[in-house]
Design a binder for these strands. Sequence first.
DNA 1: TCGGTTCTGGAGAGGTCTCTCTAATACGGA
DNA 2: TCCGTATTAGAGAGACCTCTCCAGAACCGA
Lengths: 196, 196
Amino acid sequence: MPRPPRYDVDDLLDAALALTVANTPTGVSVAELARHAGVPSGSVYHRFPSRAVLLAELWLRTVDRFQEGFLPCLADRDACRGARTAARYVVDWSRTDPDSARLLLYARRDFVPQEWPAEQTARAAAQDRRLRSALRALAGRLDVDLERLVIAVVDLPYAVVRRHLADGGAIAAGVADTVENCADTLLRARLPEPRR
Amino acid sequence: MPRPPRYDVDDLLDAALALTVANTPTGVSVAELARHAGVPSGSVYHRFPSRAVLLAELWLRTVDRFQEGFLPCLADRDACRGARTAARYVVDWSRTDPDSARLLLYARRDFVPQEWPAEQTARAAAQDRRLRSALRALAGRLDVDLERLVIAVVDLPYAVVRRHLADGGAIAAGVADTVENCADTLLRARLPEPRR
DNA sequence: TCGGTTCTGGAGAGGTCTCTCTAATACGGA
DNA sequence: TCCGTATTAGAGAGACCTCTCCAGAACCGA
C-alpha cells in the first residue's frame, strides 16, 4: 500500500561508480551524485543514512560481483587449471567491466571504513575470509606456498590490470594470455633456484 | 636582506604526506595541514599557489626519491643482476619508508593532475620517460619482452608491497627474497610453455 | 641606524557540502 | 472511495574549506 519507489538503489550506486572513476572515492559528494543521477538529495538520504554508508555499499557490491566469478575458479576440481583460470579471470573481468575494476584498484581504506556501521564492516570481513579460505584450500591442493599462490593469481594480475587501466585506456586482448602464462610459470617453478 | 623563511617547504610536504597516508590524497585540506604542521595557512599559500600544486609537489618529490635508487639498479652493467636488484629495491625501499610507499600506491590520477600547472605536468611526463626508457634499455639487454620485464620488476613487487602494506602493517624481512625469486623465475622462463 | 624585501599571522569572503526536516504525493488494500 | 504508509522534492542550517588580503615582523646590506 505504500507509494512505490521511483529510483533504484542500484542506479544510484551506478552513478556513484561513474563519479568515483571520474574522480576519487572520497571525491564523490552526495550533492554531485544527486545532480548527476537526476535525483533529489533527500531521496538519496532516504536510502542511505550517510555518504559513508553509500560508499561502503558501492565497495561491497563491487567486491561481491568480482568474487562471484573468481571464487568458483579457485574451486575448480583440477587445481592447476583453477589457478590458471583464476589469474585469467582477474584480467577478463576487468576487461569486461573496466569501471568496476578501476574501483577495485583502490583499497578499502579509501572508502573511509572507519565511518562504516558494524554491519557493513562485518560483510567486508566475511568477504575477506571467503577469499582467504579459498586461496588456502587451493594452495593446499597444489602443494604450493600460499604466498606464492597469492602472488600468481591475485597480485600479479591485479598489478598488470592496474597498469593497463592507469591512463584511462582499455585492456588489450592478449593481456590475459600473458598473465596466465606468468602465473603458470610462477607455480611450476617450485624450488627457489640458488642465486648467482 | 629579506626576512628569512621560518618554515621549510619539505616540512610542509612531510606533514602532507602524513595526512595523505592517514586519509587519502584529496582528503588532505590545507586548513588541516596548517593546523597539523603548526603553520598559519597564509604561510602555506605563500609557498604553494594552490592545494593542487602542493599535492603535485608531494607526488613528484616522492616519485623522484623512488627513482633515485631504482633507475641505477636497472642500469647495472650486469643486466640480469640489474633486474633482480630492481625488483628487490621496490620492496626494500617500501620497507624503509612505508609512508612514501603508501603514497605511491595511489596513482597520479588521485592527485587531481588536471589542476596541475604545465610545469609540474611536464616534470611528471619526464619522470615517466626516464622510467620507460630505462626499462626498454634493460629489456633489450636481457633480450626479453618489455611487458614481461615490467611485470617482473615493477608490477609484481608493487602488488606484493601493496598487499603487505594494506592493513597498516609493515613489510616482513623475507618478502624481498620472495619477490626477487619470483622476478628471477619470470625472466628465466623465456619460452611460453604449451598449455595443458 | 635605516630602508627594502620577504615572510608571518590571522581574519574573513564566498563557496560547497552533509544532513535534517517537512509538506506534498502516489499508491494498495479495505 | 478513502486511509495509511513510503517516498519525493527541495529548502536551508551549520560546518568546513580554499584562497585572498594586509598589517606588521624579521632580517641584511649600506
